[in-house]
Design a protein around this nucleic acid. Structure first.
Lengths: 98, 98
DNA sequence: ACTTACCGTAAGTGGATACTTACGGAATCG
DNA sequence: CGATTCCGTAAGTATCCACTTACGGTAAGT
C-alpha cells in the first residue's frame, strides 16, 4: 500500500486500470520523464501491483488482479471490524444509562 | 490514501479499529515516542481518517467511518473497472482468432 | 495555588525518495 | 549490419518526511 502513496504512481496505476500500456505511452500523458515512469513501474512491480510482458521492443505493464483483490479485502475487513467495535461501544454506553 | 503509506501510521490506524484510544496509550504500545504518535494523528486527522474528542486531560481519537467507506468504495470501483477491461480485452482477443 | 498527568507544537536532524540527465542494452526494420 | 525505437539503470540532486528532544499549555487532584 505504501507503493500507492505517491500521486504520480497512483496516476500510473489508475491508467493501467483501463488495460495494458507501454512505458513511453504512459510517460507522454504524465508531467514527468520516461525514466521516472520506469522507476515508478519498478516499485509497483516489486509491490506485486503490476506485472510486465515484453512485446517486441516495448514492455506492456498491466494490473495484477490479485493485488487489487487483496486491497479490497483489507478495507472490507477493516470496515466490518470497525463496525463491530462501534456496535459494541454503542451497546455498552446504552447499558451505562446514557 | 497517502496518509496510510507510513507503517507506523497504519499501525495506529489499525489499533483505532478496535475503538477510541488516547495518545499515550497508543504510544506505549508502539516503538516510537509520544510526540511522534501525536504528529501521526494530526496527519490522519487532516486526511479525514480519524477524529478527536477531548475527555479531561486526555484526547480520544477514533476512526472516521466515512473515510473507510470511501476507501472501500475506491477499491471496489477500481476492481470492477479493471474487471471490465479484462473482459473487453479477452473478447477482442477472441475475435482476432486466438 | 501547587503539583501531576496528558498532550500539542517548535526546532533540528538523518534518511528516504522522486526527479532529472546521461548512458547502455535488446528487438525491429531498412 | 547499421540505424532506429523503446526501454532499464546509474549517478547526482533537491525535497520531503519521520523521528527525537525540549518546551508550553490545559485539566484534574491534593
Amino acid at each position: 500500500m505504501a507503493a500507492l502513496a505517491d500521486p504520480t504512481r497512483r496516476a500510473i496505476f489508475e491508467r493501467l486500470r483501463a488495460g495494458p500500456r507501454a512505458v513511453g505511452e504512459l510517460a507522454s500523458e504524465l508531467p514527468v520523464s520516461r525514466p521516472a515512469v520506469s522507476q515508478h513501474l519498478r516499485v509497483l512491480k516489486e509491490a506485486g501491483l503490476v506485472s510486465e510482458r515484453r512485446n517486441g521492443t516495448r514492455r506492456l505493464y498491466r494490473i495484477e488482479p490479485d493485488a487489487v483483490a487483496a486491497l479490497r479485502a483489507y478495507f472490507d475487513e477493516f470496515w466490518s471490524q470497525a463496525l463491530e467495535a462501534f456496535k459494541a461501544a454503542a451497546e455498552s454506553e446504552e447499558r451505562s444509562s446514557e
